[in-house]
């Protein structure tokens, strides 16, 4: 009945089948390509265009300036600070997200616990996921306030003797916002890995156990390799998203105190909507895009390798 099967079974139509086979993958991707072509390419093209003009939107007759904006952005001291902060923020987030997400996914997948208990815990563990970013920022501001509950608990338990200004201290603010981002983002890994764990056949574990492998060995030689394609996808997406994390930082510290939590995202936002330098903001966005594409390139290469 089916086309593939019929073609494959009949060597005479092999050529036709090859052509068909070449078209299929594009066919499957066509809705995606259509949507992105209509809604994505034009705006992104506009951003690229903005980035080589002197200024736009505020300026009725923009003038082409070539790479001048890129030179200006890349040599800007604040940009460099923001880049450094963003890299710390992003790498910390990605690594801790992965560790937490994997740990929690393994715990929540444990067959030692009854399915009911597991499902209750699963719901609790995804909680950070179901709130909009501005509410997460507000909630953590409340809790990390000098008079907030965290300081109260720390003082009460005798761990600190003085109230700590988590978000207003130049030593702590960057770590505090990183922590908040970690809190809000780990369920993404957890749920995806939980799903990934279902794909690992029990037989592999059973075979491993018979061969005398212990828990850590099973984890290292069975679980991790099986989850690898998912972990790579997750880490890449998380890297790209965290680089752009804006609301959580803006609404907790606004990039301060001083510039200790200045990120590429807050830097870009301020260029666009605080000083109305839309061209420079677009340039900064392009830099973020290029950085993301490096990571994407790594992913695409791995993609090929895992197919082979």
């Amino acid at each position: 009945m089916s086309v593939d099967g019929r073609f494959a079974a009949n060597p005479k139509t092999n050529n036709l089948y090859r052509i068909w086979k070449r078209v299929i993958p594009y066919g499957y991707l066509s809705p995606t390509i259509l949507l992105l072509a209509v809604l994505s390419f034009l705006p992104i093209g506009m951003v690229v265009y903005y980035s080589v003009m002197d200024n736009v939107i505020m300026n009725q007759n923009p003038v082409f300036v070539g790479a001048a904006n890129y030179v200006k952005i890349l040599t800007d001291g604040v940009f460099q600070t923001a880049l450094g902060n963003t890299l710390y923020f992003t790498l910390m987030s990605v690594v801790v997200h992965l560790i937490l997400g994997l740990t929690f996914a393994m715990l929540l997948n444990s067959k030692l616990v009854s399915p009911f208990t597991r499902s209750v815990f699963r719901v609790v563990y995804i909680l950070p996921w179901v709130f909009t970013a501005s509410i997460i920022a507000i909630l953590w501001r409340l809790m990390l306030n000098p008079n907030g509950v965290i300081n109260y608990l720390l003082e009460w338990s005798g761990l600190v003797s003085q109230k700590i200004e988590w978000l207003s201290s130049r030593q702590l603010a960057l770590h505090a916002v990183t922590f908040i981002n970690i809190w809000s983002g780990y369920p993404f890994y957890m749920v995806s890995l939980l799903a990934g764990l279902q794909g690992i056949p029990d037989e592999i574990y059973e075979a491993g156990t018979i061969d005398g492998a212990n828990g850590p060995q099973l984890f290292r030689y069975v679980t991790l390799p099986q989850l690898r394609p998912i972990i790579i996808s997750l880490a890449m997406l998380d890297f790209i998203w965290t680089m752009q994390q804006f609301t959580l930082i803006w609404m907790t510290t606004g990039g301060g105190p001083g510039r200790v939590t200045e990120m590429l995202s807050t830097f870009t936002y301020k260029l666009a909507f605080s000083t109305y330098e839309f061209s420079l903001a677009s340039t900064s966005a392009m830099v973020i895009l290029v950085l993301s594409m490096f990571v994407a390139l790594f992913y695409v290469r791995r993609q090929r390798a895992s197919d082979a």
Partner: peptide
């Protein structure tokens, strides 16, 4: 496909 989500939304 990866690239379209790597542009900060605020500039888009």
């Amino acid at each position: 496909i990866i690239g379209v989500q790597a542009v900060p939304p605020i500039t888009l």
